[in-house]
């Protein structure tokens, strides 16, 4: 019973966090929903490994990221908890600005998604956690990299996105001013 209470609490308080991480890994809405569901299942199965040695958020990030890294979608027809619960992916939100109304932001977002897709899984993990505003120490805890390694990685990734963005602008000329 205690396991159920703890799980319910974790799931309720961290759904947003889990969803965002999955979103960084999967562009496809159904893949993302399935990965979220899978992450919740892994959290249930691994609850006994949480011993307050690390922060609960770090533990959740680890389980979610590891699930995303090894996630293979098996059943395309299965409805997920996120669909059953009425949670909609960001693309389908009714309050979402219409793409045509904000083409520059949409263009940037598409560029960012392509940028993320090109990254190695560990780099993508580092970016996702950085954008989640985790400290260098927390990112190191989640990934198993050293803090200095994380700092170097993030710095390189920041440079990389700048270079890629410049290349993108030179290549297409769609957005002239940053």
């Amino acid at each position: 019973m205690e396991k159920e209470v703890l799980f319910r609490q974790i799931a309720d308080e961290n759904k947003g966090r889990i969803f965002r991480i999955c979103r960084y890994f999967f562009q496809d809405r159904e893949d993302c929903n399935d990965a979220c569901q899978e992450a919740l299942i892994r959290i249930w199965q691994n609850l006994s490994t949480f011993r307050n040695q690390s922060q609960l958020s770090t533990w959740i990030y680890r389980v979610t990221v590891n699930t995303c890294l090894t996630f293979i979608r098996k059943d395309k027809s299965r409805k997920t908890l996120f669909e059953l619960s009425g949670i909609r992916s960001p693309e389908n939100r009714p309050d979402e600005p219409i793409i045509e109304e904000n083409p520059q932001e949409e263009y940037k977002l598409q560029f960012f998604r392509r940028f993320m897709e090109e990254l190695s899984p560990v780099d993508r993990t580092a970016v996702s956690l950085y954008l989640e505003e985790l400290s260098t120490r927390q990112i190191a805890d989640v990934t198993g990299l050293s803090e200095s390694n994380v700092r170097v990685k993030i710095h390189r990734l920041k440079e990389k996105i700048k270079i890629k963005w410049k290349e993108e602008q030179n290549g297409t000329g769609r957005i002239q001013n940053e």
């Binding site: 759904k15 947003g16 966090r17 889990i18 969803f19 965002r20 979103r23 960084y24 619960s85 009425g86 949670i87 909609r88 992916s89 960001p90 939100r93 979402e96 940037k108 977002l109 560029f111 960012f112 970016v127 950085y130 954008l131 989640e132 505003e133 993030i154 990734l157 920041k158 996105i161 700048k162 963005w165 940053e178």
Partner: peptide, 18 residues
């Protein structure tokens, strides 16, 4: 273009759950 621009971007954040 800065990586920071995408920090907690609402297009990536989870919508409110009823």
């Amino acid at each position: 273009m800065e990586l920071e621009e995408f920090k907690m971007n609402d297009r990536f954040s989870a919508p409110n759950v009823p």
